[in-house]
Design a protein around this nucleic acid. Structure first.
Lengths: 407, 407
DNA sequence: GAGTATATGTTCCGCGTTTAGACAAATTCC
DNA sequence: GGAATTTGTCTAAACGCGGAACATATACTC
């Protein structure tokens, strides 16, 4: 039951019905491909004539194509299968992180083409833009046989305004109100989309899941690395909030008297479960920015820690388990406030998932109000799936499939 | 950018455009009344003919009525003003709380008729249903001149499934999976709607605000009494979650090592800012359920405490200020996760708002990530506005104005 | 192999709704 | 009293869903 905003609404025009049904057809083809016109009309509960017209419109725009004929189940004419046309179209995804920036080329549906490349992130926005433009052009000429590039998606840590194409505030990069989109788009001559990394990850999961409780319900993506990034989907839509800052569960406290966090406050969830926090716990002292590290600590990662824990290092296991417990306690806040159908978790610590799942679950149950909540689905997203890059790519591909704005 | 759920969507039919535009007209009349057909057509950017037809449909359903002629600004025919027809229709709101149950009669727009009455809540569901039916009938016969009753709205604390009409779990009442709606509807012969009290309060605020950033954005209602109830609105829609438990910020922790909460966990926000917590702080010992109270404590309320604080009682002021600080710290979690355009706060502690606002604000700023967040609008809802009862009433009135489900 | 049954995809017409414009009614200004 | 202007209604055209007929394609039957 949504309220109509009496100062900002969309009247239904003569073409609105068609626009709605066109998008439904497009989504059904995407979800069920290969699929015939007749099947579409049955799924939509409209006459075959209507489905046929909508399909021919999509064919005209080359958004879909007719493939081979399907096998007839019983007798009768064989159906012509329809597919989303992701041939000869590609998308570039960019993941800007504090240390390195990653580039991936995919087709329109997000299937990876070639390898992921990366380079050191320059905090100077002009240098970074030039370097990005150069490398994107390089990739596109190298893979020129895969067709034209539909767009570039960029994810960045921090506060992003996708409508303005600006990074409003990115503490780890030292950026404030930086226009990343327009210079890059101008240099490339290709549309560029930009979004916060947590929100983009949530978006990508939403658009690739087959689960219908996720598709039209709530879900949360939690990305645990140097910091904790989160993206929240409510009613099938990424939650933005008034200032594009919604979904920052990383800075919801576990204990307001807890350890200092990079954000300046104390006891944030991030301060308990970030990679830095986990490693600090192992080494027995604070590793946060600016403090000197002892020999061997600098290159030691959470993956190394997990390997040691699996190998039987009791101290390593204790550090990992401790993070697991805090992870579960923080997830409880997400469950209590958002009640998502599913939580996605990405980040290095998830390599230990088989070790830590029981601890995470029990901590989650400890603080959730209902048994349902304690049993909330948790999906691990491995690093090899490149969730952030997939999120960046989704920024380009998803809008074509989105529901039209109405009422 | 909303995703279309490929397993649960609504195709646009022949009448869909009209349905959409009909609801827009209804909402525009509600928001701008008195308003003429010509003004409607200008606001909607459609021809006067379309507005005229939609209006005549609404007139036929008696949802609106034609009032007096307006004054012509320049020359030309005078416009006929249109109004939402809330004459000869009334709504009953019921607020079930652990101790007492409240009844209020309003017109369709939520304007109070008569006085709020109350009686002691029976935890036996059959007894309560019978007593409710008896008292509602009494009120309706007493006010029979205000016309037919359109429906009864009921709010209850705890986990409610509005679709099933059931209270799934209400700890303070000892209810588990109780059907409150159907027996009451059967006894009265009137439709009954039921909802969690926090969600209903949020709904009522959404539907009565004039602010358009609230109307189509995020807002949160926080109700502080014996417990902490919250309702969250995202994109102009109450957030339900997978199991109707979304929005429970009362049990997000401030400190996982903090005081024990009624929910069984420790350090929940509720355990810091509920009335019980505030009073316990004043008396210097735990007042929670089951513990013996000393003489005079039982009838001493937060309003009494605020009165003493205002009168200069240092101990009282300290208790109130302490609650204020925790209130602000908890609100920061709401701001960081939801980024609402506005937060509404109700409950006895708000009688001290002029005293505590600076403390709440500074605590909020302490833990919010951006200056915008720290400056989030906070609106106090005084008890005299009966937010819970207004929420109950909104359950009946709001659906008629909701946006149609499409795509 | 011809005929029949069945499924797919296209085409045509009816009807509801928006779009555009004309017209009557009402009011003010000159 | 007449011109100008605004409101509200009405009519025809354009567009898209609803329903049904028709051509096409395939399998089964005799």
């Amino acid at each position: 039951m949504r309220k109509i905003n009496p100062h900002d609404f969309k009247v239904a025009r003569r073409g609105t019905s068609r626009e709605i049904n066109r998008q439904i057809v497009l989504n059904l083809i995407r979800a069920h491909q290969p699929i015939s016109r007749a099947d579409l009309s049955r799924l939509m509960n409209v006459r075959r004539g209507v489905a046929s017209l909508l399909v021919s419109e999509l064919l005209g725009e080359s958004l879909i194509f007719e493939g081979a004929l399907g096998e007839a189940v019983g007798r009768g004419r064989r159906p012509t299968f329809l597919y989303i046309d992701s041939r000869q179209r590609c998308v570039v995804g960019i993941d800007i992180r504090a240390s390195r920036t990653y580039i991936m080329l995919t087709d329109l549906m997000g299937k990876q083409l070639g390898v992921v490349s990366s380079f050191q992130t320059s905090k100077d926005i002009d240098v970074l833009t030039k370097e990005l433009a150069r490398r994107i052009k390089l990739v596109l000429t190298e893979f020129s046989e895969v067709g034209a590039c539909e767009g570039v998606g960029v994810v960045a840590p921090g506060m992003v305004d996708p409508a303005l194409g600006r990074v409003l505030h990115a503490p780890t990069l030292g950026w404030r109100d930086v226009n990343l989109r327009d210079p890059l788009a101008a240099a490339l001559g290709i549309p560029v989309h930009i979004e916060n990394s947590g929100k983009a990850c949530a978006l990508a999961q939403l658009w690739t899941t087959r689960s219908d409780v996720v598709a039209s319900g709530n879900s949360v993506f939690v990305s645990i690395s140097d910091g904790v990034g989160t993206g929240v989907v409510v009613n099938g839509e990424v939650m933005r909030g008034r200032h594009n800052t919604a979904g920052e569960f990383g800075h919801v406290p576990l204990s307001i008297d807890g350890p200092r966090c990079s954000c300046g406050a104390t006891g944030c969830w991030e301060a308990y479960v970030s990679n830095l926090a986990t490693l600090s716990r192992y080494f027995g002292h604070d590793l946060s920015e600016g403090r000197p590290r002892e020999a061997g600590e600098a290159s030691f990662t959470v993956e190394d820690l997990v390997a040691r824990a699996r190998a039987g290092d009791a101290k390593a296991l204790a550090a990992v388990n401790s993070t697991a417990r805090y992870l579960g306690l923080g997830l409880a806040s997400i469950v209590n406030s958002i009640d998502p159908a599913r939580i996605y978790i990405g980040g290095e610590i998830t390599t230990a998932w088989s070790l830590i799942e029981p601890i995470v679950r029990s901590a989650l149950r400890e603080r959730t109000l209902t048994d349902f909540g304690g049993a909330t689905e948790i999906h691990i997203v491995p690093a090899e799936e490149h969730p952030r890059l997939r999120g960046a790519v989704a920024l380009v591909a998803a809008p074509a499939f989105a529901a039209p704005m109405v009422a």
